[in-house]
Design a protein around this nucleic acid. Structure first.
Length: 436
RNA sequence: GCGGCUAUGGCGAAGAUGGUUAACGCACCGGAUUGUGGCUCCGGCACUCAAGGGUUCGAAUCUCUUUAGUCGCCCCA
């Protein structure tokens, strides 16, 4: 037997329905904020992914799906959505052909070679947005507000936003130097990973989990002391906007994020409880003002975030019923009725009534069983008796009635029943055609 | 890359200290009930316990290896 590849999963009908539902929902909310959809390839040149995400990042150094294609080109399955979207913007010169800022959303499969666990897969799905072509700190706040609205409207309330700023170039350079200076003679007390990070990306030392209680780390210089006046003012504006809208956030100066392209504002949405374990981050993002230029485009201030859809699936509490439902079941008795009902079924289907027939059942029992599985409201039965008079026996499972009507009255009959399903309706006992 | 736990019919699962017919529930199939199902009753459904090796008179039970799943660490959405 073939089994699915490690870290992948099948979405069976019920869950597939749930995921489409969530995706449609996210699309709708994003469009309320003025975002348009963009679709970009899953397959990308290794160069794009490696350069954008950062050679020193864990994702690129040990988690990408890299391979050489039949034309000897190094390829990578995208591990995140930002780089391919930015590439598309630059390649299609969208920054010139569309009004700025570009406000785009995307969703689709991402690939990371990790050990699978709860809320983490090798092939997984993200929904994200990217705003390109603005430096306004108001946009930082708007993007965070959008993410927050998504949470609220999915009735997820037990989250908060971790917020920090990495500052502009100048701030970051000064801070990096300060960190290097500070850690220079303290390297021995850091873990092996941090010793490496000291060379490649000293900021990453700050959110090291192994050293998180290390005094050396707790006493390290803080980014807030190295922010330029401009960066400081921008960050204040972001915070005040969030205050105005009462978005709950906490400033966390240890927050750094693992992708190398981030600048200025960065944030994470995390759950207050442990329903998702330590991987409680469902949404994260930030500014990346240098990325467009690093990818050979013009310099464009940009910000975005991504949601992990599996994690969202895991935590949402929806009362929606995703089970399979059809409108009616057709039950023919005898060959003549079967042929007649096949014609009838096609008419019903193209008229918008979902329905089905069990072609193989030899007994009434089998047919009725199918009607249970299909969760139908109406059961239509036709045998030689009904056929002779062009009529049909119809059972309404909600109102629990059974009567014989003529074939041509069938659709009107069902539509009326649909409108009023109130058994104790005084006007009609369920037949008046009024909405309840 | 590292660590914990798990692996019994289509599914969920019982199976102290190894002992010889592998519970039970659900699903499914057949019948009571061949133009009316859902309830009920009766009957059927694992020469086999992830795979391979070892210990033993005897292994689903002990041991080793492998594989898979799952959870956690690192990291990330």
């Amino acid at each position: 037997m073939f089994t699915k590849v490690k870290g992948t999963y099948d979405l069976l009908p019920k869950d597939a329905k749930k995921l489409s539902h969530i995706e449609n929902y996210l699309k709708e909310v994003a469009s309320l904020y003025g975002y348009q959809e963009i679709r970009v390839p899953i397959l990308a040149s290794s160069d794009l992914i490696h350069r954008s995400t950062g050679e020193s990042s864990d994702i690129v150094s040990k988690e990408t799906y890299d391979f050489i294609d039949r034309g000897d080109r190094p390829m990578t399955l995208r591990p995140e959505g930002t780089a391919p979207v930015i590439r598309a913007i630059i390649e299609n010169k969208m920054y010139a052909n569309y009004p700025l800022p570009l406000k785009l959303f995307y969703y689709g499969d991402m690939f990371r070679y990790e050990r699978p666990q709860k809320g983490r897969f090798r092939e997984f799905r993200q929904f994200g947005v990217e705003v390109v072509g603005t430096n306004s700190p108001y946009m930082d706040a708007e993007v965070i507000t959008l993410a927050s609205t998504i949470f609220n409207s999915l009735r997820i309330n037990n989250y908060y936003v971790r917020l920090n700023t990495l500052g502009d170039d100048e701030s970051r350079t000064n801070y990096r130097n300060a960190l290097k200076e500070y850690f220079k003679d303290k390297l021995d007390s850091l873990c092996a990973d941090c010793k490496r990070r000291y060379e490649t990306n000293p900021l990453r030392i700050l959110d090291c989990k192994a050293d998180k209680d290390n005094e050396v780390l707790l006493n390290a210089p803080k980014i807030s002391d190295y922010l330029s006046d401009n960066s400081k003012a921008e960050f204040e504006l972001v915070k005040s906007y969030l205050d105005t809208l009462k978005i709950p956030y906490v400033i966390d100066e240890q927050l750094v994020r693992g992708l190398d392209y981030y600048t200025n504002t960065i944030f994470e949405f995390v759950l207050k409880d442990n329903t998702l374990g330590q991987s409680g981050t469902i949404c994260a993002g930030g500014r990346y003002n240098k990325l467009t230029k690093d990818l050979d485009g013009p310099e464009l201030g940009s910000i975005g975030f991504a949601f992990g859809l599996e994690r969202l699936m895991e935590i949402i509490d929806e009362r929606v019923d995703y089970s399979h439902k059809l409108f009616c079941q057709l039950i023919p008795i005898g060959l003549n009725a079967k042929i007649n009902m096949i014609k009838l079924m096609q008419i019903l289907r193209v008229s918008g009534f979902s329905c089905d027939m069990n072609y193989e059942a030899n007994s009434l029992k089998g047919h009725f069983k199918s009607s249970e599985n299909n969760n139908v409201r109406f059961i239509l039965i036709q045998g030689d008796e009904e056929l002779a008079t062009h009529s049909i026996k119809i059972k309404d499972k909600i109102q629990n009635t059974e009567e014989i009507i003529s074939e041509e009255d069938l659709m009107d009959y069902m539509i009326k029943r649909l409108r009023c399903s109130n058994k104790s309706c005084e006007n009609c006992e369920g037949d008046c055609g009024n909405e309840n």
